[in-house]
């Protein structure tokens, strides 16, 4: 039964198992334009999470930047790629070891907030996810940093 639900789009990407409440942030980083066909499910029941949100986008493949950004916002999400109604790839997300240009440093004294330069962070801990700015060297929990749109 589940198979049918997931395969409801012909070609495109499904972002499944998004923790409820995080879907807005995920949509923000997806750079969808007015013509994209998007289906959104919220508060669906889920064996894994109890409740979950889901996004299905027709004819879209996510960029590496988008995938990494989603990993930061909703690390528990599953990424499913659909071709001709078939699941061709299913992968869980992983926060990259090195995060470039996705998040901004919360430290107001950091050079990244003084100059127009690309932010760079290193993942220092997985659970809970924690990153260190390579410039000011401050450590932050993922929930403390702002994800750029």
């Amino acid at each position: 039964m589940k198979q049918i639900k997931v395969n409801a789009i012909k070609n495109g990407t499904v972002i499944d198992h998004i923790t409820t409440g995080k879907i807005r942030k995920v949509l923000d980083i997806l750079h969808l334009d007015g013509t994209d066909i998007v289906m959104i499910g919220m508060n669906l029941s889920s064996k894994k999470l109890g409740r979950k949100d889901i996004i299905k986008i027709e004819n879209k493949e996510l960029s590496e930047l988008e995938v990494n950004s989603i990993a930061l916002i909703a690390p528990e999400a599953t990424l499913i790629i659909i071709k001709d109604f078939e699941v061709v790839k299913k992968s869980s997300l992983k926060i990259p070891e090195y995060i470039e240009d996705i998040i901004s440093c919360p430290n107001p004294k950091c050079i990244t907030n003084e100059e127009r330069i690309i932010s760079k962070f290193k993942l220092t801990n997985d659970e809970p996810a924690q990153v260190r700015c390579i410039y000011c060297e401050k450590k932050y929990l993922i929930d403390e940093v702002k994800i750029k749109n």
Binding site: K109, C110, I111, T112, E115, C133, I134, Y135, C136, E137
Partner: peptide, 9 residues
């Protein structure tokens, strides 16, 4: 510099 990370940059 008073700016943190200025030397790294």
């Amino acid at each position: 510099s008073p700016v943190e990370g200025a030397a790294r940059f």
